[in-house]
Amino acid sequence: MAVRESGRVKDAMQKRILDEDARKRRQKKALEALEQDNFHEDPHADLVMHKKAPKFQDDLKNATRNKRKTRTADYFKQRFRKNFAQLVEEDLNYNSTVPNYTTAQAPPSAFPDRHFCAVCGFPSPYTCIPCGARYCSVKCLGSHLDTRCMKWTA
């Protein structure tokens, strides 16, 4: 077992090494994933939901509100259509008074980074040479090489 495992480890180590740019891309992707609203696709993307919600539309009419036909949700989608990156950009260009959104972000910590095994999450003293991930034991390095490491492309 130990022999086979270290043989596999050796093999992997001799293969390519992920360059600095690729590591950065991988890190960026991981951070973007943490911002995602959904991992899967809209299960009913084919249905036009707003129009298929008669119950809700009826309620709107009955609500204790007065007159003037309210504009549809779609109107607002068209009327205000800036994405987040555009908003930040606009803020920096036209509204550059400090402090602002960009300057308010907390600066980097003065404490050193801590390192955890990419597999099991426990503190990890070792760095995987090909990809820079952390691991804590031969066992975890094995699963890392089998499942992630160079198997991901970023």
């Binding site: 707003h50 809700f56 309620d59 204790t64 509100r65 949700a73 607002f76 989608k77 259509r81 994405n83």
Partner: peptide, 24 residues
């Protein structure tokens, strides 16, 4: 950023189903 969704939720909040009020 998604105003159609926000408007839909606000409409729901002010509707009979949730917190009906006379907005005016």
């Amino acid at each position: 950023v998604n105003w159609d969704i926000q408007k839909t939720v606000w409409d729901y909040i002010f509707s009979k189903e949730c917190c009906p009020i006379n907005l005016s």
